[in-house]
Design a protein around this nucleic acid. Structure first.
Length: 271
DNA sequence: CCGGCCACCTGCGGGC
DNA sequence: TGCCCGCAGGTGGCCG
């Protein structure tokens, strides 16, 4: 489910409820996530106060005086603040209960997600240490992308989805940004001009920012209570639109597997 | 360092 | 109905 906009939207949704609150209890129903949830989590967090919550890449970082807890939503994770007594689903793996009555609930059917203790220097942990720049930051720009692409022979789509190059560009927005920038997803990363990397960088920033503004509703399973599909999905130009006409030239959108992931593009507009 | 491939896991929709 | 197949938002790790 979550690309970066969903993670950012989740952050904005939960933060006001949890800042300055102290942990009353930790409930772990299923510890077999991508890595096992550590057994000491309960005693470590008990009575600790949430000093801040922030996002780095697609990780949500919960800062306490004694260290930082990271939660990653993987492919199918969701994190919600609920009031007491919402029924427990079979995939509700972890709850953090707070003294103000708030309840942070982590649900993740596929269990590719992560609830992991990073200690006092989270940025040096193995999960965060090697990550590239944030896509919406100023140090992510065309110059940077172009310089990192030198001599790389792999497909540009794989290149921009590599978290060591830039974080937060998932499978949906990689296809979208490349369409915006008129770049073919299979083109070698090292065979793209400086100027076109400017365009690609702007496109990445724009598709992510627009999705965040739309409330991070990228997903097929983000359906509102009255059954209306997620708002932003209707704005996707190519992702999931195989066989329908390109909005720019009416050529039929094609799907092709690149780096074991489905990629969508217009063979007329993108080169 | 780089590219290619695999693994982890559950659910859903389509075809037969 | 029910089974089997392919597909799905991520990313660390391994191998050559």
């Amino acid at each position: 489910m979550p690309e970066l906009p969903e993670v950012e939207t989740t952050l904005r949704g939960i933060r006001p409820h949890l800042i300055d609150q102290s942990v009353k209890a930790v409930v772990v129903r299923q510890r077999q996530l991508r890595v096992p949830v550590s057994r000491g989590l309960k005693s470590k967090l008990k009575d600790q106060v949430v000093r801040d919550i922030e996002r780095r890449a697609k990780y949500l970082l919960f800062h306490f005086d004694c260290g930082t807890l990271a939660i990653h939503l993987g492919m199918s994770g969701r994190l919600r603040v609920i009031s007491a007594s919402v029924p427990i689903d079979k995939h509700d793996h972890v709850d953090l209960l707070f003294n103000n009555g708030a309840q942070l609930r982590f649900r993740d059917p596929r269990r590719f997600g992560l609830v992991v203790w990073l200690g006092k220097r989270p940025l040096t942990s193995r999960w965060l240490a090697h990550l590239g720049p944030e896509p919406l930051s100023d140090n992510f720009n065309g110059d940077y992308l172009y310089s990192r692409a030198a001599n790389r022979r792999g497909a540009v789509k794989n290149f921009i989805m590599d978290g060591r190059i830039v974080v937060g560009v998932g499978n949906i927005y990689a296809s979208e940004a490349l369409h915006h920038a008129h770049i073919h997803p299979a083109r070698g990363a090292g065979r793209i001009s400086r100027h076109r990397y400017d365009d690609l960088c702007v496109a990445i920033k724009r598709v992510l920012a627009r999705a965040i503004d739309a409330g991070g509703t990228t997903l097929r399973d983000y359906v509102s209570a009255d059954g209306v599909p997620g708002f932003f999905e209707q704005q996707l130009a190519v992702y999931g639109r195989e066989g329908s006409p390109c909005g720019l030239c009416s050529t039929l959108i094609r799907r092709r597997v690149i780096g074991q992931r489905s990629s969508f593009f217009c063979s007329q507009c993108q080169h």
